[in-house]
Each structure stands twice: as C-alpha cells, then as structure tokens.
C-alpha cells in the first residue's frame, strides 16, 4: 500500500496519542513538531512509539533509524524508507 506523507501523519497521530497529554497540539502537528519538546512526550515512551510504529506500518525500525525519530518529519522519513524497502 502506498501512503503519502499526509496519510502517514494522520496514522502517526494515532501512534502518538497515548503518550501525549496535549491532544490539541497533536491535532495540529506538522513535520517540524518535536516529540519531546513540543508534544511533551516522556523520553521513557520513545521505545513504545517505535514499537507501535513498527506494528502500525508493518515495518522493522533498526537502531540507527530509530535514533533519527526526533520530530514528526524525521519519523515520516524513516517510515517511508522502511515501507519502500518492503515494496
């Protein structure tokens, strides 16, 4: 299945939702939104997010890619890269 970046953002919101209190900010995220400093996600949940993303998009995120997932844009880059590897 091919998803564009906006579709990935829409799905990513569902992945991030359990880990942020600020649902209003989550609704309005863009590629620059930082997971920790903007969405106030506790760093202890970063591994949860990676594993939830792996499950949501049916991909495997290696450690080198995981460390790039700092903001929404870099999350999408990693997800797109891993989805393309499957095609």
């Amino acid at each position: 299945m091919i998803m564009d970046r906006q579709e990935i953002i829409d799905e990513l919101k569902k992945v991030l939702a359990p880990y942020t209190e600020d649902k209003e900010l989550l609704d309005g995220i863009n590629e620059q939104t930082n997971l920790i400093t903007d969405l106030k996600i506790n760093s202890a949940n970063l591994v949860d997010i990676i594993i939830d993303a792996e499950s949501k998009y049916n991909i495997e995120i290696d450690l080198d890619s995981a460390e790039k997932m700092i903001n929404v844009g870099s999350c999408i880059d990693v997800i797109v890269e891993k989805m393309n590897l499957k095609m």
Binding site: V47, I50, I51
Partner: peptide
C-alpha cells in the same frame, strides 16, 4: 527517574522492546 507505575512491564520483558535499549 522512571516511575515503575508508568511503565509497561509486559512489553518491557519482550525482546523487541529491551533489545532497542540494551
């Protein structure tokens, strides 16, 4: 600081989880 009430014990014990940390 890690509050143990705030972690998912079952998930932490899964290889997919802890191998991303250790």
């Amino acid at each position: 600081i890690v509050a143990l009430q705030g972690i998912n014990r079952q998930r932490t014990n899964h290889f997919l989880f802890y191998s991303k940390i250790l």
